[in-house]
């Protein structure tokens, strides 16, 4: 145990599956990673950026108890990095509290001495320097993954989950709804963002138009969180780090700014098209084809051409 590095990734695993951003967190820590949770041995085999893996198998993923069990182990580690996925986000604050360290959530980059945090929907980057041991969460999809390396043999560690820490009782895990599956497996996706709905317009109707245009192109429709929060599309349509993680070949973004939390769920599409009035927004900057135009109008035009009618 005394050979733990100064920077270490902690990844929460469920039933042998790695969460989004697991390899990126590992890569940020030069490949040193704790895989914690259920099915950790199996999950350890799917890392591509890990060079040293410790597995910690527990009967169930419960953030309060896990934090209590892990805290003493992490004492020698200066910088603990977790991917900002749902389970790791749960654990990060509990760990920070247990270890009496500050938490820097939502980082784009992290070194042994400092982190750049993404704030204000990705328009601001805040650099913080570390003057004490810290916990950091890293936004998935931002860093990229290096050349894959075969996973090393994991070192198994054992912990005892305390029974005096209160956690919620797991009733069941609901499999993704068919809708969601359809989106995660879609090879072509048309995404709608805040810029697709004009103030005062019926957003739900606009999203229905997007769905029908998508259908005409053999694609599925997705959305940003702004759109799903507004209730214009169901929450299972939300693409991003806190929504559905997809991996299409083609992504066409309508009125989407390209925030890290959205792009983090996009996989690596071969072709990206962005229709946006702002030629310098991140989505257009990363697109193969950036079209500077009014997205609502363009969608209406596409609906007219492809479906013969505009119902938006």
């Amino acid at each position: 145990m005394n050979e733990l590095p100064k920077m270490l990734a902690v990844v929460v695993v469920r039933a042998g599956t790695l969460p989004g951003g697991a390899d990126e967190a590992a890569a940020e820590c030069s490949g040193a990673v704790f895989a914690v949770g259920t099915g950790t041995r199996e999950a350890a085999r799917s890392f591509t950026a890990a060079r040293r893996i410790w597995t910690i198998e527990v009967p169930l993923v419960a953030p309060g108890a896990l934090a209590a069990a892990l805290a003493p182990l992490l004492e020698p580690v200066d910088v603990v990095v977790l991917p900002a996925s749902p389970d790791s986000r749960d654990l990060a604050a509990r760990l920070a509290f247990r270890c009496e360290r500050p938490l820097f959530a939502g980082a784009l980059r992290c070194t042994a001495d400092e982190a750049d945090l993404s704030r204000l929907d990705d328009s601001l980057e805040v650099r913080v320097e570390f003057d004490e041991p810290v916990v950091v969460t890293l936004i998935p999809g931002v860093r990229g993954i290096p050349q894959p390396v075969p996973p090393p043999d994991p070192v198994e560690l054992a912990v005892n989950l305390p029974d005096d820490v209160l956690d919620a009782e797991l009733v069941e895990v609901l499999e993704p709804e068919p809708e969601t599956v359809e989106l995660t497996e879609a090879k072509r996706i048309l995404g709608g963002g805040a810029g697709l709905v004009r103030p005062g317009d019926d957003g739900a109707a606009v999203m229905r138009t997007l769905t029908s245009v998508a259908a005409a192109l053999g694609a599925s429709a997705g959305a940003t969180r702004v759109v799903t929060d507004a209730g214009w599309a169901a929450h299972d349509r939300q693409i991003g780090t806190t929504g559905v993680v997809v991996d299409p070949d083609l992504y066409v973004a309508f009125g989407i700014s390209g925030a890290a939390q959205h792009v983090g769920g996009l996989g690596r599409p071969a072709q990206v098209i962005s229709v946006n009035t702002d030629p310098s927004c991140p989505m257009t900057a990363m697109a193969d084809l950036g079209i500077v135009a009014d997205a609502p109008e363009v969608l209406r035009e596409l609906a007219r051409r492809l479906n013969g009618a505009a119902d938006g």
């Binding site: 192109l217 072709q271 229709v275 257009t284 950036g290 500077v292 135009a293 363009v298």
Partner: peptide
């Protein structure tokens, strides 16, 4: 990577569909 525009809705739709066609994303 190219950024084109500002375009009208019709021009934008032309560009978009044309791009999809060229890259094999036909109907």
């Amino acid at each position: 990577p190219t950024v084109i525009g500002p375009l009208s809705a019709a021009e934008a739709a032309d560009e978009l569909l044309d791009y999809l066609q060229r890259h094999g994303y036909t109907r």
